[in-house]
Nucleic acid binder design. Structure first.
Length: 116
DNA sequence: TTGCTGACTGCCT
DNA sequence: CAGGCAGCCAGCA
């Protein structure tokens, strides 16, 4: 079976692969870094449709307000929280301190993600 | 073409 | 701090 994937989706995925352990990004930020301004909806969609085989660090993407975007009492929510804590990211009362854990790539990292 | 739907955001109460 | 809401944009019926 083939999956209809757009160029924007692969951009999102490649950018996501560059997010390091212990750091998070918002949907909007991920889209921006992938070269898709105002593409936060696309970022969300790219995550939802991502093949598991890609081994993407999907849990490092959260809402801009610092909360996990998934429904609070869902399995996905609990799984994401566990994965984040395993990364060393503090999740307190369901939210994350963005000033401490937001990924802020330097120029070298940005160029690297753009290359792939 | 039209309308609706999201793993979203920022602004306003 | 919690809702409400318009704006956003690709995909699908």
């Amino acid at each position: 079976m083939t999956i209809a994937m757009s160029d924007s989706m692969t951009r999102i995925w490649n950018t996501l692969l560059a997010v390091p352990v212990g750091k998070v990004v918002s949907y909007g930020q991920l889209a921006d870094l992938a070269g898709l301004p105002r593409g936060h909806r696309q970022a969300a969609r790219a995550l939802r449709l991502a093949p598991e085989a890609l081994q993407l660090p999907w849990h490092r993407v959260i809402s801009a307000n610092g909360k996990i975007a998934l429904e609070k009492d869902s399995d996905g929510y609990r799984q994401q929280m566990e994965l984040l804590r395993a990364d060393g990211v503090e999740v307190i009362n369901g939210r994350i301190n963005m000033t401490r854990f937001r990924w802020q790539p330097d120029l070298a990292e940005l160029l690297f993600t753009l290359k792939h």
